[in-house]
Amino acid sequence: MENLGFYNGEYDLIENMKIPMNDRVCYFGDGVYDATYSRNHKIFALDEHIDRFYNSAGLLSIKIPYTKEELKDLLQEMVKKVDCGEQFVYWQVTRGTGMRNHIFPEESVKANIWIVLTPRNIKDMSKKIRLITIEDTRFLHCNIKTLNLLPSVMAAQKTEEAGCDEAIFHRGDRVTECAHSNVSIIKNGIFKTAPADNLILPGIARAHIIKMCKRFSIPVDETPFTLKELMEADEVIVTSSGQFCMSACEIDGKPVGGKASEIVERLQNALLEEFLEETI
């Protein structure tokens, strides 16, 4: 079995799964999700992803019908059902199923759990990536990993049309994050990343790279930085669950980075080693 879907206790190949049209996700994007990767049928950084998942659901008053341990066991069980050991592991919870109404359904309506497993490897971190900047016009609760992803979808389309790999959002002159990732910079040996406020999603990979910086005594500055600082940085780093530490070579058609490659390589090697060790 190459891929697998799960919906409220039933599972099958993804192409065979059927979801009720009245699931509130269809009308409102009324739910939250999280995702990570597995290797050798072991899910990477699962505790941290589960914690963020429950935090996002709690901020939207969605009651997940599993304890954290039950959901972790379910995800691990699902991963073992798939032939390929290297998987993209995606899960979400929606507020429930009912006739369309903006008001929350009655408490008797249970939340719906989805799981989707597809074969995928983490990205080759030796590959340089190209970026563009886009004014951040998304809602002001970016710290919730919500299913309302239309702004990111539109940014991804603009990125594709520009022949680039990711888009960096900014609000005025302040750099926030990317459409699907976190963005940080290295300048004069200091790793600088946006604070974990309501304008960014606090990425798990972001937390791991901060941990690695501290291990190597690389100073970390979690304060806002500007577009000017971005363009003048020694390195521009993009982090996400599938690309732990990617360095940029271009933003808006202008060359960037390439001035602190030793620091980048040290972080990349450490993050890859952590992933390999945790998924043996």
Rank of each mutant, 00 (worst) to 15 (best):
I43W: 09
V264N: 04
S38T: 01
D30L: 00
H102E: 12
E166K: 12
L71F: 12
V25S: 15
D234M: 04
P195S: 11
E277D: 13
S247L: 01
K192I: 02
E77I: 01
L149T: 07
S247R: 12
E86W: 01
W91Y: 15
L149D: 03
S247Y: 06
E106R: 14
V116L: 10
L59I: 06
M154F: 12
F44H: 08
V175D: 05
T97Y: 04
V264Y: 04
L276K: 09
M231D: 00
P219D: 07
C178M: 12
E232K: 09
N55M: 13
K80G: 10
K42F: 05
C178P: 03
I64V: 13
I43G: 08
I144H: 09
I103V: 15
V32W: 05
E135H: 02
H41D: 02
R171P: 00
E69T: 12
G85V: 06
L131E: 09
K254A: 12
T137C: 11
N112R: 11
K259Q: 09
G31S: 11
T239G: 03
S247G: 05
V25R: 15
Y66A: 06
G85E: 04
I14P: 05
K127Q: 15
P151E: 06
V82Y: 01
F191C: 02
I200P: 10
P255D: 01
P119F: 03
Q76D: 11
N3D: 15
G257V: 02
D30S: 06
I186H: 04
L272Q: 11
R100S: 11
L227E: 08
E177V: 00
R100I: 14
I218Q: 04
I62F: 01
R24E: 10
D136S: 03
L71T: 02
L131N: 01
D83T: 14
L4N: 04
E166Y: 13
V183K: 08
L46D: 05
G31P: 08
E107Q: 13
E166A: 12
